[in-house]
Amino acid sequence: MSAQGVLAPYRIGELKLSVSFRFLLSLYAIVPLCVLVLWLDRYGFQHALRDMLPSSPSHFLLFQVLFGTPHIIASNLLLFGHSDYVATFKHKLLGMTVFIAVFFGLGSLFIPYRVLYLISAAWTVYHVLKQQHGVAKAVCRLPNWAFYLQLWLSVGAGIFIYMGIFLKNSLTPEQAELVLRIAGVLTAALLLSTLVCQKYVPSRFGVGFLWANTLLVVASWYVYSQQYYFLAILMPRLVHDITAYSFYVSHDVNRHGDRPQTLLFRLAALCRLPVAVVLPLLSFLLTYLLQVYGDDLVNAILQTLFATQVYKAVTLGLIGYLALMHYYTEAFIWAAGSPLRRYIRFSGI
Score class of each variant (00 low, 15 high):
residue 150 Q to A: 03
residue 95 G to M: 11
residue 287 T to D: 05
residue 74 A to H: 04
residue 267 L to A: 09
residue 240 H to G: 01
residue 278 V to L: 01
residue 330 E to L: 01
residue 191 L to S: 08
residue 39 W to S: 06
residue 307 A to I: 09
residue 267 L to S: 04
residue 231 L to S: 02
residue 32 P to I: 04
residue 263 L to R: 13
residue 68 G to H: 02
residue 74 A to R: 05
residue 154 S to G: 14
residue 73 I to V: 06
residue 33 L to H: 09
residue 348 G to V: 11
residue 81 G to P: 03
residue 261 Q to M: 15
residue 131 Q to V: 13
residue 109 L to G: 06
residue 39 W to E: 11
residue 207 V to W: 13
residue 268 A to Y: 00
residue 153 L to W: 05
residue 120 S to C: 14
residue 304 T to S: 13
residue 35 V to K: 08
residue 144 N to S: 10
residue 78 L to P: 02
residue 76 N to W: 12
residue 57 P to H: 01
residue 322 L to R: 09
residue 339 P to K: 04
residue 125 V to G: 11
residue 6 V to G: 10
residue 324 L to V: 10
residue 325 M to I: 12
residue 18 S to F: 01
residue 342 R to P: 04
residue 301 I to V: 15
residue 198 Q to P: 06
residue 162 Y to N: 15
residue 251 H to S: 14
residue 58 S to D: 14
residue 144 N to V: 11
residue 321 Y to K: 09
residue 88 T to V: 01
residue 71 H to C: 07
residue 204 R to F: 07
residue 169 N to I: 14
residue 232 A to W: 01
residue 34 C to I: 11
residue 84 D to S: 13
residue 208 G to H: 05
residue 104 F to V: 15
residue 273 L to Y: 01
residue 118 L to Y: 04
residue 11 R to C: 08
residue 148 Y to N: 06
residue 65 V to G: 02
residue 41 D to H: 10
residue 27 L to I: 08
residue 116 L to W: 02
residue 323 A to C: 15
residue 268 A to N: 03
residue 310 V to S: 12
residue 204 R to D: 12
residue 63 F to H: 00
residue 125 V to S: 09
residue 32 P to E: 07
residue 322 L to T: 14
residue 340 L to E: 11
residue 239 V to C: 00
residue 5 G to F: 15
residue 27 L to K: 07
residue 128 V to C: 05
residue 4 Q to D: 13
residue 112 P to H: 10
residue 231 L to V: 03
residue 147 F to L: 15
residue 189 A to E: 02
